[in-house]
C-alpha cells in the first residue's frame, strides 16, 4: 500500500493500469446499472473487477486492496447510500486505501452534494450517459479533481 495521509479519498497516486472495481454496496439487488457500467468500462479498455451484489463496506475495501484498483465504484438504489458510503469512506481511511470513490444509483440531488462534500469523487445518477461515466473513471484514475 502507498503512503497516505488518510484524510481524503481523492488524493490519489498514478495508477499503473486502468484497473477499477465495481460493486453493489449493501443488500440492494438492482444490478442493471452496475453491470452496464462494468461492461462499458471493460469495452473502453479498463480492467474491471466486478464484485456483484450484497457487498458490505468491508467486502469492498478488502477486494479493492487485494485487487489493487485505482477507483472504487459502488451502486446503490435502495436509499441507504448515505450511511453505506459514509462507512465505506471511513473504513477506507482506516485501512489507508486512498483511491477515489464513484457512487451510482438513485441518489436525490441534495444527497449527491453531501456525498461529494464527504469526499466522494463523483455521483452518477439515472440517465448519465456512458460517455460521462467512462470519463469520470478516467479522470478519477488520473487524479483530476
Amino acid at each position: 500500500m502507498p503512503e497516505s495521509s488518510g484524510e481524503s479519498a481523492v488524493e490519489i497516486r498514478k495508477p499503473k493500469r486502468l484497473r477499477v472495481l465495481v460493486a453493489k454496496l449493501g443488500l440492494d439487488g438492482h444490478d442493471r446499472g452496475a453491470k452496464v457500467v462494468a461492461r462499458a468500462l471493460r469495452d473502453a479498455g479498463f480492467e474491471v473487477v466486478y464484485l456483484g451484489v450484497h457487498q458490505s463496506p468491508e467486502d469492498v475495501v478488502e477486494a479493492a486492496i487485494e485487487e489493487d484498483v485505482g477507483v472504487v465504484g459502488v451502486s446503490i438504489l435502495s436509499g441507504s447510500h448515505m450511511e453505506l458510503v459514509s462507512d465505506l469512506l471511513k473504513l477506507m481511511r482506516e485501512k489507508g486505501l486512498n483511491v477515489p470513490v464513484i457512487v451510482g444509483g438513485i441518489i436525490p440531488p441534495d444527497d449527491a452534494k453531501e456525498l461529494k462534500r464527504m469526499g466522494v469523487y463523483e455521483v452518477l445518477g439515472p440517465g448519465t450517459p456512458l460517455k460521462k461515466v467512462i470519463e469520470a473513471y478516467k479522470k478519477a484514475l488520473e487524479g483530476v479533481n
Binding site: G26, L27, D28, G29, H54, S56, S78, G79, S80, E83, L84, D87
Partner: peptide
C-alpha cells in the same frame, strides 16, 4: 431488504437498509 433476505433488523448488514425500500 433485510426482510426479503431473512435477516433481522439488528443484523450487521441489515442495519443500513431497515425500512428503506
Amino acid at each position: 431488504l433485510p426482510t426479503q433476505l431473512g435477516l433481522d433488523p439488528d443484523h450487521k448488514l441489515a442495519w443500513y437498509e431497515v425500512g428503506k425500500v
